[in-house]
Every structure is written in structure tokens, then in C-alpha cells.
Write a protein that binds this DNA or RNA. Structure first.
Lengths: 230, 230
DNA sequence: ATAATAAATGTATTTTTGACATTTGTAAGC
DNA sequence: GCTTACAAATGTCAAAAATACATTTATTAT
């Protein structure tokens, strides 16, 4: 073959899976089910196969454990330290996924020993997975400011307060409720539904839905989703 | 071995090399010197070796052609489409480098058939290299707004006008000279040197140098390099 | 009818942006 | 040596955005 004098490598995909629940940002981890380090907490991972792209491998791995398809998934970075996996040289491509945590299959999670962790209770992870998680968190923070990816973590209908709680969890600081509301509604990307969520107040809070069409129509005319000042 | 039933892959590194010269942002390309597609314009690339990380491979490849070490280099993304290289399955990790184009070794470039191109004269490139270039350009635009990476493209001493020309080249739009100057000087990251560049005006323009120490001192106390509004 | 309370709107101050006008410092031409 | 030319540097001011609170609103439970 053309490149037969070149080295070949095992290629893995490791997924950082974010969820949002009870006003907290969470991470889905599972107990590794093969050697080495079997039984230790780990990101969801697997090896790339010859007949698939990295994106396809990441989707496959995610579907295997959560049962979910068509999830927001984005490549993070390649991790290639020589001894990151002590068993053999493996280059890993990190991914991160955003899922609406109400939708995943609970049985599937149980079957794979998977569990949601808040950020202050993340256990020690195998290999360089803690680093991958940190990189994913950094990326989420950055990306959430300039692209409407937060909605991936919420149910399709949500109150402005829920949306604010999500951003407060991502940025890890409090946001002024009045100013947040004004900023978001001013973007004209949300449709207000004629429904109120009466669970958290007497007055009730209107439910909103993210309108992807409006977003795309806006962006094509130079509009920028920008949450820098919230 | 532990993972012996898994597939292995060729791993390549391809570098998008940015330079800045004559107020223009440029790209360094070379004529590929091995089959397939030998003689066609291409990014600088090479295969990963077992004893090196991806960052090391990228540095090695860059040094081989430009003669430069210690260059600003950052990983972009992995490219894994099944037939991106028609000769064999190769997963490529894209990198981008920023170099002060006055420093590179001209002989080295000639030896490798390398050439600088402005963005409107980039030729057809092999494989998916055009896509890698586009991704790199997008990344540079984004990154330049929130991190002081622009300085990597300039000589160590520069005038505010030069700095503005650089940002105008990156953002591809004109910036108000007065406002740009104020914004940048207000950041307090530049040291004004007691030297004037007399080449472009009667009055002469003071030279400045980026002060990395000041930047790091600032950042640790919550300061953010932010060129969103220029 | 009233109290309680999160949701929603309002308001005032400060900061930042954006566009343009003015002054400054120097070399070259007379 | 005086004037001219001109980018560099500084100044000005209105509009927009961010920030910090204050107030009103809609509803249910008592």
C-alpha cells in the first residue's frame, strides 16, 4: 500500500455528556466494562471502526448507552499523550454531547452502570478523562455565549426562569432576572406559548420555545447570538 | 495485546500556516512531494509516528519546512471522512500556526517549493485541505477576539497602525483608527517604547511591544482580553 | 377580601460603542 | 526659518448597551 511504511494507531472516541436537571448541570459517567481499569468511572468511549467517521463513532457510542439518537454532539479535540492509556498507545478524540436529561432511557443507564454527577461530586476518572471533562466544560461555557446551544439541554418548552437557571449553572454565577429576560426576549428567537407553568409561582410563568427558523433567518442577515453581556 | 481485535489507522497532521505581510494575511502552501497527488498544492503535512504526540508531530513538520521552532501552534480538529484521502484511510488532525513572516527561512521554503498566498489567490488544494483552511480561518477570527494571539503574527515591535492593519486583515473590515487605538491602549497590555517608526509619516509612530507578563497578571484577576467591540 | 410571591415590567445610572472633528509632531520644499 | 503636508494621536459627543434596583402584575391559598 501507498503508506505501508507509516505507523498505525488505535483511535478511540470519548464522550463528555452534559445534562441539566434540578437547576444543576450534570455529567453522565459510567463504570468501564473492559480491561484495563474495568469497573472504574470513565467517560463513555469506544474504538473507531474502519467503516465509520469519528462523528459516526461518537453517535454510535452515545446511542449504545443512552438509547438516544440525534443528540447535539461536537468534536472537542484529540488527546495523544504517549502513555495516556497505559495498556497501549491510543489516540482519543474527545466529544461532548448535550442532552435533555428527561429523555434518556433510564433502563439503558442502569444496564451500563451509568450515573449522573454534579460537578462538585465527579469521582476520579481513568486516564486523562478529567482533562477531557475540563476541556469540555470550558468549551461549553464559551460556546453557550455565542450560539444557542443551551436549548439542547432544556425540554422543548421552558420558562425564562428555567433558561436563566441553565445559564447560571453554565457560567456558575448569578444573573439578574430582569436583565436576562430582557436580553433574551429582545433577541426574538423565542416564541411565547399560550401556556403557563403554575408549579413555581402563584402568577405562573409563560412557557417559551426556541424558534430555530427565526434564528437561522436572523443569522443569515448578519445577526449574532451574543450573550456576552448578561 | 489488550486491544488487538480493534482497528488501527494512519494518522496525519496537516498544518494551516498563517503569516502577515504587507498588510495582508497570507497562507503558506507547498507542492506535495509524495504520492498520491504529488506536485499538487497542499497544506504542510506528515504522518504521526509512534514515539511522538500530535503536537510534537505538528512542530516537527513545521520545522522541517520553515526551519522555525517555538511557533504558535494549535490543534483545530480531526478530519475523518472515509475517502478524504483516496489512496488509503487516513485520519488527519488539522493544526494552525501563526508565524511572523519575516522570520522564516526563505531557502527552506524554496527547497520545499513552498509559497505564500493571499486569501483571494489560494489554488485548488488536495483532499479536504480547503475545508481545513476554512476551519482555520474561522478559528483565527474567533480566537483573535478573545485572546492576544495576533501578536504572534507581528514582529516583536510594532505600531498601533500595524496592529490595526492586522486586525483589519483578520476581520476583513475596516476599523476606526481612533477607537481601535483607544481600546487597545486601554487594555494596558502594550508597552510604549521610546522609539518611533518614521517610515510611514512625518510625525512618526511610536513602537509598542506586547507585554505578556502584564497580560498574565491581568487574566489571573478576572480580566478578559475582549475585542468584541472594535 | 387579603396576603403572599414569583413573574414581568419599569427606571435611572453608568459604561461602552461608533462616528467624526481637532490637534500634534516631524520632514521636505520653498 | 517658515510653511506645507500628513499620518499619528487625542478629543468630543450622541447613541446604545449594560447594570442595578424599584415597581407592578397575576394568580392562589387563606
Amino acid at each position: 500500500m501507498t503508506y505501508s511504511n507509516k505507523d498505525k494507531f488505535y483511535l478511540a472516541v470519548d464522550c463528555v455528556i452534559f445534562g441539566f436537571d434540578n437547576d444543576q448541570l450534570k455529567l453522565l459517567l459510567y463504570k468501564r466494562d473492559f480491561e484495563p481499569e474495568i469497573g472504574k468511572w470513565s467517560l463513555m468511549g469506544g474504538f473507531l471502526k474502519t467503516n465509520e467517521t469519528l462523528d459516526e463513532a461518537a453517535s454510535r457510542i452515545l446511542a449504545r448507552i443512552t438509547g438516544l439518537r440525534d443528540i447535539y454532539l461536537e468534536q472537542l479535540s484529540a488527546f495523544s499523550e504517549l502513555n495516556r492509556d497505559p495498556a497501549d498507545r491510543v489516540i482519543s478524540i474527545g466529544y461532548y454531547a448535550l442532552i435533555n436529561s428527561k429523555e434518556y432511557s433510564a433502563e439503558m443507564l442502569k444496564q451500563y452502570g451509568a450515573k449522573w454527577f454534579t460537578f462538585d461530586e465527579i469521582p476520579k476518572l481513568i486516564f486523562d478523562h478529567t482533562e477531557i471533562v475540563n476541556r469540555a466544560m470550558k468549551r461549553l461555557k464559551r460556546k453557550a455565549k455565542t450560539q444557542p446551544i443551551g436549548f439542547e439541554l432544556l425540554p422543548s418548552q421552558f420558562t425564562i426562569t428555567q433558561l436563566r437557571n441553565l445559564y447560571e449553572a453554565i457560567y456558575q454565577r448569578e444573573l439578574d432576572p430582569a436583565n436576562f429576560r430582557r436580553k433574551f426576549i429582545g433577541m426574538k428567537l423565542l416564541d411565547r406559548l399560550p401556556i403557563k407553568d403554575m408549579n413555581h409561582s402563584r402568577k405562573g410563568a409563560f412557557l417559551y420555545a426556541f424558534n430555530k427558523n427565526k434564528y437561522e433567518a436572523h443569522t443569515s442577515s448578519g445577526f449574532a447570538f451574543d450573550l456576552n453581556g448578561i
